[in-house]
Design a protein around this nucleic acid. Sequence first.
DNA 1: ATTAATGCAAACGGTTTGCACTACT
DNA 2: AGTAGTGCAAACCGTTTGCATTAAT
Lengths: 150, 150
Amino acid sequence: MARSASLPEPWASVGDQLRARGQRWTRQRDAVVGVLSRTQGHITGAELLARCRQVDASVVPSTVYRTLAALEELGLVRHGHGASGREEFHVGADTEHGHLHCDSCGRQWEIGKEKADAIAALFQADGFQVDRSHVTIVGRCRDCLRARKD
Amino acid sequence: MARSASLPEPWASVGDQLRARGQRWTRQRDAVVGVLSRTQGHITGAELLARCRQVDASVVPSTVYRTLAALEELGLVRHGHGASGREEFHVGADTEHGHLHCDSCGRQWEIGKEKADAIAALFQADGFQVDRSHVTIVGRCRDCLRARKD
DNA sequence: ATTAATGCAAACGGTTTGCACTACT
DNA sequence: AGTAGTGCAAACCGTTTGCATTAAT
């Protein structure tokens, strides 16, 4: 299959990277990568599947999950856990981030490096090495606190 | 059904608390509460189910989950999320705690109040109110770091 | 031609539901 | 007697698997 269409790096070269490992570049993987390239931060497997289907109705769950596994081996995504308990994939150049999740409105924000480091530092004394990409902090965002003071 | 057998508070009075709300005290709920009273920290629904079955083989999933919902309304348990992504129930007088989870050996430790507060403080400036009982930090514990330096 | 990847369908695990039945109050 | 709670079975959701088929190399 042809090289993936003019996507920003690191996505443009995914096909080549896969081939270099004896793996293959397919129409379905192109669809998955296309969606991921337009995703900032994080996405669940189910969400990714749904969005891929809009692009290419033939994409099935197994393909999405197998492709995610392949991309994870390339270091292009990392899996972590969202507040809902669902598995989540961190996407983008900076996959090393956690999430701030509002319990009320469901919106999410990434946790910046400084704060992730601050959290990691808290547990360093215990000899515990924090995986920054797995940090999920749940609570109420400013807007929701203002909206309903219950 | 009879009052629950000499359990430490707050479990001993669960039956009365339920009845006061027009709800009922049953053999199955006694089994669930019995297990919870012997649980420190946290437990998943599935785990709780398994342990209840050892006590009373007739306990079925729906009963466990419905009972957990009832107990949550009484404030005796709170649900949060474990590192595996599974729903987890925080048990005990101090339900306000997060978890430190070792990715490698699977062991968990509670996060103390001071550290939970420190984490909450990090996001206070953003106007974000952290739910301390939902905090789960994943990484590698001291022992596993020592064991395999990969 | 080789063999990685796909599509399907079935199975998984944990959880939730509808409903007739049981048993607490 | 009234009705909350139960047990069952089926459905749910997201994810994973086996296997025959397709298609990238």
